[in-house]
């Protein structure tokens, strides 16, 4: 039922992820950042808070892709992957909300502001929490896999609407929202880009690493349960 091939050990991209994140921690605190009112040094949170959301979206894309692969192949291994990627994504989303809340307290003055992006983020997290509940409510493996893969498509679409589309239709305190921004309008200076992009790639790779471990643990669990 489940694919029997062994997974490789620590493959190269895991080291790349670790080194990139370590680089972003060191360099993210040491580089010169633009001196902006209100933000002050907290602009460095860009390297840590925003990367959580980028890696959450990467996890949800992976979950969506494996859900679709499951629907094509009916191999339960892909369903396990889709599930674990979604779980890691939810975890990163919770971290994103928590760090964003702390950041908002000391820049916007409140733990929670009624902002389109914040409400959208929490709504999309709720949609994915419903995914977890949906999975838990079904006993039959293939039925659960099929229903949750279809629901995964739905929840991914909702997440895009909540995080990408709605904040741009209304005003938001987040930069790059309200109106129709390109990437150039993000007020990132070139020095911050040299840390931000490696940080994004590094955290995405770290998220894949952690999910890889969780997938392999679940495979082992299933194998020992079958034998």
């Amino acid at each position: 039922m489940v694919n029997q091939s062994t997974s490789p050990g620590i493959v190269w991209w895991k080291w790349v992820g670790a080194i990139l994140v370590l680089y972003s921690i060191i360099q993210g605190l040491l580089i010169q950042v633009p001196r902006l009112p209100i933000l002050h040094e907290t602009i460095r949170n860009l390297f840590f808070h925003v990367t959580m959301w980028f890696s959450m979206i990467a996890m949800m894309i992976a979950s969506l892709v494996y859900g679709l692969i499951y629907l094509r192949t009916n191999d339960l291994l892909h369903d396990i992957r889709a599930k674990q990627y979604a779980y890691t994504g939810i975890f990163l989303g919770i971290l994103g909300l928590a760090t964003g809340s702390l950041w908002a307290k000391y820049t916007w003055g409140s733990w929670w502001v009624n902002d389109a992006k914040l409400n959208g983020a929490s709504a999309s997290l709720l949609v994915y929490l419903a995914y977890v509940i949906l999975r838990g409510s079904m006993e039959d493996d293939h039925k659960r896999a099929r229903v949750s893969a279809v629901y995964g498509i739905f929840s991914f679409t909702l997440m895009l609407v909540f995080l990408m589309i709605l904040p741009r239709l209304t005003d938001s305190l987040h930069p790059g929202n309200g109106g129709n921004p390109g990437f150039g309008t993000y007020d990132l200076d070139s020095k911050m880009r040299t840390v931000f992009y490696p940080a994004v790639i590094g955290w995405i790779l770290m998220a894949f690493w952690i999910t890889d471990i969780r997938i392999r643990i679940e495979k082992l669990y299933i194998k020992s349960w079958e034998s």
Binding site: S7, G9, I10, K14, I213, R216, K223
Partner: peptide, 16 residues
Amino acid sequence: LVIIERRLRKLEKGQN
């Protein structure tokens, strides 16, 4: 994480 990886690999080898 690396230690977890090693243990996991040992378990995976033992299973096959």
